[in-house]
Every structure is written in C-alpha cells, then in structure tokens.
C-alpha cells in the first residue's frame, strides 16, 4: 500500500511539474473561468433576477467546464512519446497511476477554483466569507466526483482520434447528478439557509463520490489494455 501511494505521489508530482512547465491547461482554464463568470454576470438583468439566484449555476458551470480542460490533458501528456509505456513497464500497480492522476487533477482543479471563487464574490457580490466552510465542503465533494469520473474517461478516450471532443461527450451525462446536487446545496448556502436543508443532496454527492471512486478504480486497469 505504501509503495502504491509513493508511486501515485511521484506520478502526481510529475504531472504538476509538466503542467507548471507548459501552463497551457492552467492558463486556458483560468481564462475560461474568468470569461464565463463575466459573461453570465453581464447577461443577467439585475432588475429581473437577483445575483444570488444566478450565482450557484454560474459557479458550477464555470468549475465544470474549466475542469474539463484540465481533465483532457491528464492523459494527453502520456500519449506524447508514449510515456505511458514507461510507466506501465515500472513495477508499480496500475491503480497507482489512477490515484496519481486523480491527485494531480484535484490539485489542478483546486487551483482553478481558488482563483475563481474570489472572482465569483467580486462579480456576484454574494455574502460568502461566513459561509466559506460549508461552500468548501460542497466544492470538495462535487469536485472529487467529477475529477474521479473525468480521470477514468480521460484514460479511455486518450487513444481515440478525437479525444478532446470525446471526453466532454462522455463525461457530461455522468456529471449531471453531482453538478445538480452541488448547485442545489450551493443555492441554499448562498441564501443563508441551514446546511441541514440540503442534507439529501449532500448525501447524494457523498454516495456518488464513494460509488464512482470504487467503480473507477476497478475499471481503470482495463482502460490501459490495447
């Protein structure tokens, strides 16, 4: 177990180092996040719709699509020079590769979210700071959900010719439950309602995390076979 976690950590650190060198996905994701938050803000008629009604949807549309840019690149970097073969030849369990990729993707999406949340507060003027722990909880659980499924699907589509298009097509249906759940919980948090009102949605998010983490971990090794 320790060996697998060490290998997973090495893979995550390598992925982040590669991303830090190029910054292509990070810059694209951040630019996308700023653009979506701004466009949705200016598209709203403030006399007809209050900011707090639009804000949860805007936040999760931003997170979901910005994350997809990062998830796409997770295995593309392994396709170049067939570096994936080098990892597969090493005496580490293939699950370590999945865990490493999930860890790197979580770090990547978290970085995008850390930059996006202050912008979100700035644009939508939502009272957030006292509700930050609750919002962090829902962001964490929902992000884990789409990163886990996205990492699995990214490994499946990377050998296809149109992987950049295939990933969103396959991933979006899986994202409906966690994103709807996250929007529902976020709406209640921003409206100042108690978190207990959204307990059902939070349970759904947690159940999604557990079930899809288990399924994705089991299925991942099969996606590596040519």
């Amino acid at each position: 177990m320790g060996e697998m976690l060490r290998a997973a950590m090495a893979i995550a650190v390598k992925d982040l180092a590669v991303e830090w060198r190029t910054k292509t996905a990070l810059v694209s994701s951040l630019a996308f996040a700023v653009l979506v938050l701004a466009v949705l803000f200016f598209a709203r008629d403030p006399t007809a719709v209050s900011a707090v009604d639009v804000a949860p949807g805007a936040l999760w549309v931003t997170f979901t699509f910005a994350a997809m840019i990062g998830l796409n690149r997770a295995f593309l970097m392994e396709r170049e020079n067939r570096a994936l073969d080098g990892i597969l030849l090493a005496p580490v369990p293939r699950t370590a590769l999945f865990l490493g990729k999930v860890a790197a993707n979580l770090a990547f999406v978290a970085a995008v979210e850390v930059v996006s949340v202050p912008l979100f507060v700035l644009f939508y003027d939502v009272p957030l700071w006292d509700r930050l722990p609750a919002l962090a909880l829902v962001i964490g659980t929902a992000t884990f959900a789409f990163v886990v499924v996205g990492t699995l699907l990214s490994s499946m589509v990377v050998r296809t010719r149109f992987s950049e298009i295939m990933l969103p097509l396959l991933l979006l249906p899986f994202l409906v439950p966690p994103v709807v759940g996250a929007v529902q919980v976020t709406a209640r948090i921003l409206a100042g309602r108690p978190l207990s009102e959204a307990a059902g949605w939070l349970r759904l998010l947690l159940a999604f995390d557990i079930v899809f983490f288990a399924i994705s971990t089991l299925l991942f090794t099969a996606t590596l076979d040519e």
Partner: peptide
C-alpha cells in the same frame, strides 16, 4: 526478473 524496453518513442516527457 525485470524487463525493460527501448521503443521507437522515447517514453520521456519533452518538457522535463
């Protein structure tokens, strides 16, 4: 024992 391989592709990361 251990098996290793050198293929057409370098299996290396260009940016590292």
């Amino acid at each position: 024992g251990s098996v290793s391989m050198v293929a057409h592709h370098s299996m290396l990361y260009d940016v590292l």
